[in-house]
């Protein structure tokens, strides 16, 4: 499961709108809470997202690539914060929020979450997350994973008040 704050979830969707009609990409920092054998599933708990540049300027509408040098810096940043890289996100402009053959071929971070947002005519539509499971390149698979969105108490209260006012 992917767990993420509402603000971060909205921020990665907004990133896809800003770069439309090109793909956006970024990194999810947080902690992996492993399956401890108590029946609870493993969770990639996002605590910060980092925007990254798309180096595929030759085909940015349908490809993305994060420069390894930028990844090294982001990994250093994560280490400084006591966090890990737990996933990545990118957008699919005018395409479904489903992984593609290219996404799968280029996915090598086993145990990490790959979040994809479809952006339709410039507006973020669906956001899905896929866990890259398996132990090797040969047996890796993408699994659909649920997204738990945490809403800050003050935001939740405001939303409840709004709903109450509308009732």
């Amino acid at each position: 499961m992917l767990r993420i704050h509402y603000a971060d979830y909205e921020a990665l969707r907004t990133h896809g709108e800003e770069t439309y009609p090109n793909e956006c990409c970024g990194v999810l920092l947080g902690k992996n809470i492993a399956d401890e054998g108590n029946g609870a599933e493993a969770v990639n708990h996002v605590q910060q997202i980092v925007r990254a540049g798309n180096t595929r300027t030759d085909s940015a509408h349908n490809r993305y690539n994060i420069a390894p040098q930028e990844l090294v810096k982001i990994q250093r940043q994560a280490r400084g914060l006591g966090l890990d890289i737990v996933g990545f996100y990118h957008s699919h402009p005018d395409h479904p929020a489903q992984w593609s053959k290219t996404d799968f071929a280029e996915a090598h971070w086993l145990g990490c979450s790959y979040v994809i947002t479809s952006v339709e005519q410039g507006k973020a539509a669906l956001t899905n997350s896929f866990l890259l499971s398996g132990t090797t390149e040969e047996d890796k698979t993408f699994e659909d994973e649920p997204i738990q969105i945490d809403i800050a108490p003050n935001v939740a209260e405001a939303a409840a008040q709004t709903q109450k006012g509308q009732a």
Partner: peptide
């Protein structure tokens, strides 16, 4: 020394 697997993808070559 930092080991860093690549990260890339995109909608091209759809299944």
């Amino acid at each position: 020394l930092t080991i860093i697997p690549s990260i890339a993808g995109g909608t091209s070559c759809r299944l």
